[in-house]
Amino acid sequence: MALLELENVHSYYGNIHALKGISLTVEEGEVVTLIGANGAGKSTTLKTISGILQPRQGVVRLEGRNLTEYKAHEIVSQGVIQVPEGRRIFSRLSVRENLEMGAFTRKDTAGIKADMEKVFTLFPRLLERENQVAGTLSGGEQQMLATGRGLMARPRILLMDEPSMGLAPVLVDLIFDTIKELNEEGMTILLVEQNALLALDVADRGYVLETGTIVLAGSAKELRENPQVKEAYLGG
């Protein structure tokens, strides 16, 4: 059984039909990427998984359980954690407070403390800025914080929405190295990206999304070599 499974999911914003029957799976321990142009429905897919948006048709399953029957906060407690698009950190709170917020659903104080240490080892820069107001961090540091905050929830699966957006190449590399590192430790990740080149580099498998429909699916290697993908997303 797949860890996460979407089956024929249709989502709407009012009358706008944003997802037109999405089906995909993520297996335990995989990095799966969802690539597509701006407005394709990538974020909408993640919102639907997280329960922020209710699909009108279709099911989302986590280990076989139907997630559409749960509210957004209950889905978080089941370990489906979003790292939202555009580095949505709590900008007036300190770095530490942001990380603590990430562990909101947890009550195991010792475990939280240990995970905080882990995040700081993963991102030493955050430790240096532990008490700094998050809004004053650089873009790259904010992305680290958003990722770290996601990890603080002890995810079963981490949903990352365009972590490379607006970052300098060095920092993008750093974030993607972290994704690899997390995956090597066993973390399951669904990675949403516009930057197909990078995403297919770290991913095991991928899906290509166009205006709410999945038009291609395959292993990362297959997709990298696919002429259509090459032309549309990899710059020929």
Binding site: S50, I52, K71, A72, H73, V76, S77, I81, Q82, P84, R88, I89, F90, S91, R92, L93, M101, G102, F104, T105, R149, A153
Partner: peptide
């Protein structure tokens, strides 16, 4: 969390 950012608060598992 709600005061700072409602959407993210929801993503943190806050009802």
């Amino acid at each position: 969390a709600v005061r700072e950012d409602e959407d993210v608060a929801e993503a943190m598992g806050i009802h």
